[in-house]
Amino acid sequence: MNKPTLRKNEIAEQYLTFLDRHIDDVIKGNEQEFFSIKHIASTLAVSHTHFTDTIKKVLGKHPCFFYDEKIIEKAKEMLGEKDMQPSVVAKKLTYDPSNFSKFFKKWTGETPGMYKLHFQQV
């Protein structure tokens, strides 16, 4: 693998690792809100355009896709906890409960409440 390809793969790997840490920080209250893609690119020491192009090329989709996907993964984990209500999950993820419900349904096909109900039945 040539040097530019290695760097692109490194950027993609750093991004996914950063997302995991950042989302955990938001849930724990260490960060008040989710960072913008532009801020993340800057944190990884690359321009916004180069960052976006690199993620698309290496991972096949826009960086926002992976951001949202990881937020949904965390939401599903939290909804799987017995005492965790959808409104609490929404707040921990810095969403208004109504907007969170729409976002979650767009990704999963069901509301957070329905997901929790189905999860508990399994």
Rank of each mutant, 00 (worst) to 15 (best):
K70Y: 12
S47E: 10
H50C: 05
Q85L: 12
V89E: 03
T52M: 08
S36Y: 12
F119D: 10
E13N: 09
N99D: 15
F100A: 03
P97A: 05
Y95W: 15
F35P: 09
H118R: 12
K61C: 03
H62V: 04
K8F: 02
I40Q: 06
I55M: 06
E31Q: 12
H62D: 11
T52S: 15
Q121I: 06
G113Y: 02
V122Y: 06
K38G: 14
T43A: 14
V46F: 04
F119K: 13
P4R: 10
T17Q: 14
G60N: 03
V58D: 01
K70L: 13
R21I: 13
S47R: 07
A90C: 02
F34C: 06
L6C: 11
T5R: 13
Y67H: 12
Y67I: 07
T52C: 07
E10S: 15
W107Y: 04
T108K: 03
Y67A: 09
K28C: 10
K116Q: 05
F103P: 00
G80C: 08
K56F: 01
Y115V: 01
S36G: 07
E73F: 08
V46N: 03
F100H: 02
A90Q: 02
M114L: 13
V58T: 11
N30L: 15
D25P: 04
L117P: 01
W107N: 04
A90M: 02
F65K: 11
I37F: 09
F18I: 09
K82G: 00
F34S: 05
K38N: 15
M78V: 05
M114W: 05
V88C: 01
T111M: 00
N9W: 08
L16Q: 06
L79Y: 06
E73W: 06
D83E: 11
D25Y: 11
H62Y: 07
S87A: 06
